[in-house]
Design a protein around this nucleic acid. Structure first.
Ligand SMILES: Nc1ccn([C@H]2C[C@H](O)[C@@H](COP(=O)(O)OP(=O)(O)OP(=O)(O)O)O2)c(=O)n1
Ligand SMILES: [Mg+2]
Length: 1164
DNA sequence: ATCCTCCCCTAC
DNA sequence: TAAGGTAGGGGAGGAT
């Protein structure tokens, strides 16, 4: 299994990652980091206006005096950035809009430098703009020496373009790892055998050491051996052994300086400044190369050639429909989607069930449990075979194709007899079994089978948790105990026997029922906890059931391989192997401390327990969604940057869709980029696969939660650019939203309000406590204390102010527990949400006819401006509404948002970019090569921890303990069952002692948690808790200028300003702004331009306001469809007021810019 | 200590 | 040809 540990161990990687190249004494210049996003807009504009190619075309005959120069302008200059750019490019030079650490500037042009920058650029040629101007004047490249900004020679090194040295550096191994920045410090010498290397292809100089901790490089990247799909058993490691000529090496081979430089410059420029026309691609302007892989080919050239095949174009990213097409065919995508849908539906159903069932009996602490783990046998394959009975006894696999790299999603048991496994590549499978029958996917059929499966399962009396489309957990403890006639605690032979018999019977019936409905076999594992059920399932398969009874647990589990345990696979398995552990029973030889120190506190303890058959996890504990993402790592082959950016745009569209679908917005955007490893061939073994890649993540904090496609896309593209990767090397791209907040359309709940024409400033003064300096950041949200809102919402159920509240959703009684645990209350909206979500999903999935869940039922319509009690809402109608309206309605019922306030309270200060760090992994663990060749493991959803809730989080320190405590007293009041008595009784003496000790320990912990205030009765719903109070006070603080808030360095970063604006806008959105505020903002931005000299910031802020306005406008347009004309009118007025305000601000900024003698800026 | 961020790992 | 997605647990290590 681990036999093929690759040389690419993490330890080795770490070292390489931090590697800088050897000859630091040499002439290399340090690759510099990108300049941050601050000036993104300004530079982008230049880009849009002046494409290098155009510039050159427009200025023929100019002497190419800057040939070989790659310039970067820092700060503001005279002549302007724009002009310098023009001068340089038109005279044959290259120009960088960004410093990205990959593409290397040869000269940095600046009028002056801050000390910090001075340090940052210490190793560069830093020269004054005059050098450019005068060189042009002179018609030749003047010696830069006389134009130094930093006028002493000792730290500025000279970069020699002309020696072969430059290009030879291209071979230097290093990583584009963020860690390198400080890691390089102490790890500089390690070079290592050609593992992950830095992309030098696009730069003339190898990126070098970074000791500048403040700089912001790619947030991270990791080497990733990606072609793990190639199973070791195949032996053919063709790809790995392949040593194709990479462009880097090609560059080396060309030793003429000038061409190299030219190449470099162009390439660098093109990375950052993609030609525009590429947005309508189709025609690859690139090289009419011969069909062969020329040694010196750039990745772009290669891709262009590759894509000249129309079929290639069609299945790759070149196809405009690519995203949808890919997702339509991606099994993994379907699995994920299905899972999310099922989770939402089941959660809703469970909620409903538990609420309608009166007084559900609680289980006693030490009682026995009976858990079923139900799972289709070779699901995809079975469904397909069912349609093709003639294949029944043949080895069958489900896959898209029969080529080497086609992945087998599922194979039947005859195929498994040959050693074939799910997830294996076709090549390997065919080697094992040339007769393998390959059948295509049939996603709708899987859905259908699953629907029947779940309908059978939901018919059982018990708690259900979905694991996946073909797999579920059912806790049937209640009915078993009933059948046994005991409380599940005593050890009574008779009771236990009857309980077990009942469990077996339920399982058998279930299997029969599903088999009958679907024609496919399921197996059932039965055990006293999730772990036991799961491992029992293994033995049950195929087409059987197995009850792992208490007295057999230890032996059975002990003889499993560690990797058979859920949550243990390649990596953890290897760590255990290092500890001398192969079988689960071996784990018992290790002390808890040992395990913890080797694997971490949670994992260590968990394994210690697993080894003894213990698993305290409860069935059905579902948590709230924490992230939404979209990612594609297949078929990514770009020729131009513009294509890449367009793709990112599409991907963001997808993300947007999902955010809306889930009724959330997010505050943190993370972009994930896979880039071909330097030593990876241009063509991976897998058709259009990503091959071996380095992975880079970077996240940014948005000032305010958003789901707007354009904003997301803008940021994502900006991140992508910041890496400056050569588009041809991109292999995978993804975007993820975290720090989610429930969607709240501001217009919705306020829309009945009248537009205030008279700017009577509402109590804003009554805000004496608003010491601007102490405002950590303006809060948005809390509309509950806007008089405007409360009136509008007054008749809606307030989830805050009542401990028991009948809500009737989808026609079923819905009652909050009387012991109003704040945590429960806090979670409520999420539950409601999940119902909305699940409903909208089942609608979307067109699984209309008869929903398996009891959720949807026809009803009356909702949607008039004056919304009825929530109980009257008809889910179907609701889900059919346009997204904006739907979210509005939801927002209407949404708990007034202390949520947003507290979420903000914990939001980290936007960091310029978290400083890089080195993770000194112990060099001894080198499990990393390729992942496992092992049977697909039993499904592992065993670990559901109660983790943080995003939405409600008391912001004060006091609340942490309280949260813990209140969770203890939440619905499942009982302590988690740890070990049942009979199980304990069955244990050998020594192990029992251990377990008892463990239990004692756990109980101590729980007690200490419980002791905190709220053991019994948590403080009553506290809309006025500390967080809310803070929110109230600060909410209305118009985060506008003239206030130290804005001018203090600390609070003037872009995200903060954005957030401030958002807050401002949401406070006065429907009313229109106050003139004085607008004026203040204008003045402030004017100062930003004139004093801070940060035009970008001013422009960005202004644009943000523009976004807010137009975004709201979009919402309004849709949502007012059914509103009164009066409302519409108010909106129109408000909109106009805001537009005017925007105009004023823009004008002000523009004026300031012009005062500085700079070309006018453009607002988006 | 505890939190937060950035990853890795796992599952289907 | 081929469709290598996605969410959540949790560890390491810096920030507080
Ligand atoms: N690497 C994988 C693993 C699974 N699946 C899909 C196809 C499977 O049919 C389905 C269910 O996964 P299981 O792990 O339950 O595997 P099977 O149901 O195919 O086989 P069995 O449950 O009998 O082991 O998920 C996949 O596409 N790729
Ligand atoms: Mg299965």
């Amino acid at each position: 299994m681990g036999s093929l540990h690759e040389t690419n161990s993490s330890a080795v990687r770490k070292r390489i990652e931090s590697h800088t190249f050897d000859n630091e004494e040499g002439e290399e210049y340090e690759a510099s980091r990108f300049g941050g996003f601050g000036d993104y807009m300004r530079r982008k504009k230049i880009k849009l206006q002046n494409l290098d190619a155009e510039i050159r075309a427009l200025s023929p005959g100019k002497p190419p005096i800057f040939r070989g120069v790659v310039a970067y302008v820092n700060g503001y200059t005279q002549p302007s950035l724009n002009d310098i750019h023009n001068l340089i490019v038109s005279h044959g030079g290259g120009f960088l809009q960004y410093l990205d650490g990959k593409t290397v500037a040869t000269h940095i042009i600046a009028s002056s430098l801050t000390l910090k920058k001075r340090e940052e650029f210490r190793r560069y040629r830093i020269i004054k703009p005059a050098w450019v101007v005068e060189s042009v004047k002179a018609g030749r490249l003047l010696p830069w020496d006389s134009y130094r900004v930093v006028d002493e020679g000792h730290s500025q090194k000279v970069l020699r373009f002309d020696s072969g040295r430059l290009s030879s550096q291209a071979n230097i191994q290093k990583r584009g790892y963020k860690d390198q920045s400080d890691a390089s410090w102490y790890t500089s010498q390690l070079k290592d055998q050609g593992r992950v290397t830095e992309d030098v292809g696009s730069s003339a100089t190898a990126p070098a050491t970074h000791d500048d901790a403040t700089s912001s490089l790619p947030a991270s990247s990791t080497g990733k051996e990606s072609d793990y799909g190639e199973f070791p058993s195949m032996g053919s490691l063709a790809e790995d052994q392949d040593t194709p000529t990479t462009p880097k090496q090609a560059v080396v081979s060309v030793e003429e300086d000038s061409p190299i430089l030219e190449n470099t410059a162009e390439q660098s420029a093109s990375v950052v400044e993609p030609p525009l026309e590429e947005t309508a691609p189709v025609e690859m302007p690139l090289l009419r190369e011969p069909i062969s892989v020329k040694p010196g080919m750039t990745p772009e050239e290669y891709n262009a050639q590759l894509l000249s095949d129309p079929r290639m174009r069609n299945s790759s990213v070149m196809n405009p429909e690519f995203v949808q097409q890919f997702y339509r065919e991606s099994r993994l995508h379907h699995l994920s989607t299905w899972k999310a849908e099922l989770k939402a539906q089941l959660q809703a159903a469970t909620q409903e069930k538990s609420q309608s069932q009166t007084a559900q009996k609680k289980r006693l602490p030490g009682a026995r449990r009976y858990i079923l783990h139900v799972d289709f046998d070779s699901f995809f394959a079975a469904v397909s075979v069912h349609k093709r009975p003639e294949l029944a006894d043949k080895p069958v696999a489900v896959a898209h194709g029969t080529g080497n790299g086609s992945e087998i999603a599922s194979c039947n048991y005859p195929a498994r007899a040959y050693g074939i496994k799910n997830g294996m590549w076709m090549k390997g499978a065919l080697q094992m079994c040339p007769d393998l029958q390959v059948v295509p996917y049939d996603f709708p059929a899987y859905e259908e089978a699953s629907r029947k499966f779940y309908s059978s399962i939901l018919a059982i009396e018990g708690v259900v948790q979905s694991v996946s489309i073909d797999e579920a957990l059912v806790d049937i403890t209640m009915q078993c105990l009933e059948a046994g006639g005991s409380d599940g605690r005593g050890i009574s032979e008779g009771s236990i026997y009857r309980e077990q018999a009942r469990a077996d019977e339920v399982a058998a019936k279930l299997r029969a029922s599903i088999k009958e409905k679907t024609g496919c076999a399921v197996s059932v594992g039965i055990g006293g906890n999730i772990l036991q059920a799961k491992v029992a399932l293994r033995k049950a398969k195929p087409a059987g059931q197995f009850h792992l009874k208490p007295d057999a647990v230890l032996e059975f589990i002990g003889n499993l391989t560690v990797q058979d345990l859920p949550g243990v696979a390649y990596s953890i398995g290897a760590k255990l192997e290092e500890l001398g552990v192969t079988y689960v029973k071996d784990i018992r030889e290790l002390s808890r401390e040992k395990l913890v120190s080797a694997l971490g506190p949670k994992t260590g303890v968990k394994l210690w327990e697993y080894a003894r058959g213990i698993d305290r996890t409860e069935v059905g504990t579902e948590t709230m969604r924490k992230s939404v993402s979209a990612e594609i790592n297949w078929g990514i082959r770009f020729v131009t940057q513009a294509q890449a950016e367009e793709f990112v745009y599409n991907l963001c569209g997808e993300l947007h869709r999902r955010l809306v679908e889930n009724l959330v917005k997010g505050k943190q955007l993370t972009m994930r980029i896979m880039r071909r490893s330097a030593d990876a061939p241009l063509e991976p073994v897998k058709h259009l696969g990503h091959g071996k890649c380095d992975v880079f993540n970077k996240s940014i904090i948005l000032g305010v939660a958003t789901n707007a496609k354009d904003i997301i896309a803008k940021e994502a593209v900006s991140i992508l650019r910041s890496f400056g990767f050569s588009p041809g090397d991109l292999r995978g791209l993804g975007v993820q939203m975290t720090k989610l907040e429930p969607v709240k359309s501001m217009q919705s709940s306020q829309q009945q309000l009248n537009f205030k024409t008279s700017p009577v400033r509402p109590k804003r003064e009554p805000n004496p406590a608003t010491d601007p300096d102490e405002v950590d950041s303006p809060r948005k949200g809390d509309r509950s204390n806007l008089s405007t809102v409360s009136s509008a919402v007054s008749h809606a159920p307030s989830l805050n102010d009542s401990t028991q509240k009948p809500l009737n959703l989808a026609g079923t009684q819905f009652i909050l527990p009387s012991q109003a645990d704040p945590e429960v209350v806090a979670e409520l909206p999420g539950d409601i949400r999940s119902r909305f979500v699940s409903m909208s999903k089942s609608q979307a999935a067109k699984t209309r006819s008869e929903s398996p869940t009891p959720l949807s039922r026809p009803g009356t319509a909702a949607g008039s401006v004056e919304l009825p009690p929530q109980s009257q809402l008809d889910p179907d109608t609701l889900s059919a509404l346009p997204e904006d309206v739907r979210s509005e309605i939801l927002a209407y019922y949404e708990r007034p948002s202390t949520t947003a306030v507290s979420a903000l309270a914990v939001a980290p200060r936007p960091q310029p970019s978290s400083s890089s760090r080195l993770r000194p992994t112990t060099p001894t663990k080198k499990r990393r090569g390729r992942p496992p060749l092992k049977a697909s493991k039993a499904p592992g959803n065993a670990t559901l921890t109660q983790s943080n809730f995003i939405r409600i989080r008391p912001s004060s320190a006091a609340s942490s303990a309280e949260r813990t405590a209140s969770r203890q007293s939440s619905p499942q009041i009982n302590e988690p069952v740890e070990v049942s008595e009979d199980f304990l009784a069955a244990l050998p003496e020594d192990i029992r002692r251990e377990v008892l000790e463990e239990q004692k320990r756990i109980r101590m912990q729980q007690r200490s948690a419980l002791n905190i205030p709220a053991t019994r009765k948590p403080p009553q719903p506290k809309p006025s808790g500390p967080a809310a109070a803070v929110g109230q006070k600060r909410l209305r603080l118009p985060p506008l200028p003239e206030r130290p808030t804005f001018t203090s360095k600390k609070l003037s970063t872009l995200p903060e300003l954005r957030e401030a604006l958002s807050s401002w806008y949401s406070s006065f959105g429907t009313d229109g702004p106050f003139a004085e505020d607008v004026e203040a903002l204008s003045k402030y931005l004017r100062r930003v331009v004139l004093e801070e000299k940060d035009i970008d910031k001013a422009v960005s802020v202004t644009d943000w306001l523009g976004w807010l306005i137009s975004d709201a406008r979009e919402n309004t347009k849709e949502s007012t469809a059914s509103s009164t004309s009066e409302t519409k009118d108010a909106h129109a007025q408000s909109y106009q007021a805001w537009t005017t305000a925007l105009d004023m601000v823009q004008e002000s900024v523009q004026a300031a810019v012009q005062e500085r003698g700079l070309p006018p800026v453009e607002f988006s």
